[in-house]
Simulated scan of single mutants.
Amino acid sequence: MATPIGNARDITLRALDTLAAADLILCEDTRVTSKLMRIHGLHRPLMPYHDHNAARVRPEILARLAAGAVIALVSDAGTPLVSDPGYKLVAEAVAAGIPVTTLPGASSVLAGLTLAALPTDRFLFAGFLPAKTTARRDALDELSATRASLVFLESAQRLAEMLADAAAVLGPRPAAVCREMTKLFEEVRRAPLDALARHYAEAGPPKGEVVVVIGPPAADAGPSAGDLDAALRAELAHAGPSAAAARVAAALGLPKRQVYARAMALKAEP
């Protein structure tokens, strides 16, 4: 049986029982997992399983599972398979008829969502955004009309740039930066996107792992076609279609691609 287990200081009793009974424990970094094992007095074989060796060692792991071994998959932090290695192993184990279960533990995504003070009835986890500004803004633009809270993981070093791009594309939506979820130095900062961008640009990168939660677009019916055209014509009077579309999209909470297409249509009118 394959069992993904979150590696956290608030590990469950069920997870500890499973680790104690496992024939093998797969981990991103054996040094990290060995500390967990020592704390709880556990002594089981550890084996690295990460993005760099997964393709090579997966056949061996699947063979051992097929032979009846109990194998646990542990992440360094958070929940395995959520932006962590393991998806292909679980998919191939399921395809081979090998039973797989999960032992839920700490999840930075869900912890951040519950502490952000933003709507939780509908949310979209979008992982990491692209590292480059143009690609990042394009990705945010695709998500801009999603009627749900948006949840991202982000590098502390890129946080200020990501927040600035989000503010430019999505406007001053309410948001929260959640740091070190479920850990000793847990911290949540709540403010509109533009204010958060200014704060981290001035304060510098925070320490630890970061989750960003952004509220959904306003619940009203949104601007009419006439409102959109009026706003675009005003911007097109002194700016090109791209710049005009960017400003109007941010102001009205509309996808930039949609607004740009309309700006080009208006520009082509006699």
Rank of each mutant, 00 (worst) to 15 (best):
H43D: 15
P45R: 02
L46C: 03
M47V: 02
M47L: 15
M47W: 10
P48W: 11
Y49T: 07
N53H: 10
N53I: 06
A54V: 02
A54P: 01
A55Q: 15
R56N: 04
R58M: 09
R58K: 04
P59E: 12
P59T: 10
I61Q: 11
L62M: 07
L62P: 02
R64M: 11
L65E: 10
A66F: 05
A66N: 05
A67Q: 14
G68W: 12
G68K: 09
G68F: 08
G68T: 07
I71K: 01
L73Y: 00
V74M: 15
S75Y: 11
D76I: 10
G78V: 14
G78P: 03
P80E: 13
P80L: 07
L81E: 00
L81W: 02
L81I: 04
V82S: 00
V82E: 02
D84F: 05
P85G: 10
P85A: 14
Y87E: 08
Y87C: 05
E92I: 03
E92V: 01
E92N: 03
A93S: 14
V94C: 04
A96I: 06
I98K: 00
P99C: 11
P99A: 11
V100L: 00
V100H: 06
V100T: 02
V100R: 03
T102K: 00
L103P: 01
P104K: 11
S107D: 13
S107E: 13
L110G: 03
G112H: 11
L113N: 07
A117V: 14
P119Q: 12
P119M: 12
D121W: 08
D121P: 00
R122W: 05
F123G: 00
F123L: 02
F125G: 02
F125N: 10
F125I: 03
A126W: 10
G127L: 07
L129F: 13
L129T: 13
A131R: 15
T133Q: 10
R136A: 06
R137S: 13
R137I: 03
R137H: 04
D138Q: 15
D138S: 14
D138I: 12
A139R: 15
L140F: 09
S144T: 14
S144W: 03
A145Y: 09
T146H: 12
T146W: 07
R147I: 06
R147V: 08
A148K: 08
L150N: 04
V151P: 04
V151G: 10
F152H: 01
E154S: 05
E154C: 10
E154H: 11
A156T: 03
A156M: 08
A156P: 15
A156D: 11
R158Q: 12
A160Y: 06
E161P: 00
E161G: 13
E161F: 01
A164Q: 07
A164G: 14
A164V: 02
D165E: 08
D165I: 04
A166L: 12
A166V: 08
A167S: 09
A167W: 06
V169T: 14
V169W: 01
L170N: 05
L170R: 04
G171Y: 13
G171K: 06
P172H: 10
R173H: 02
R173F: 05
P174H: 14
A175R: 07
A175T: 11
A176E: 04
V177E: 04
V177Q: 04
C178W: 06
C178E: 05
C178A: 15
E180R: 02
T182I: 03
K183G: 06
K183N: 10
L184Q: 13
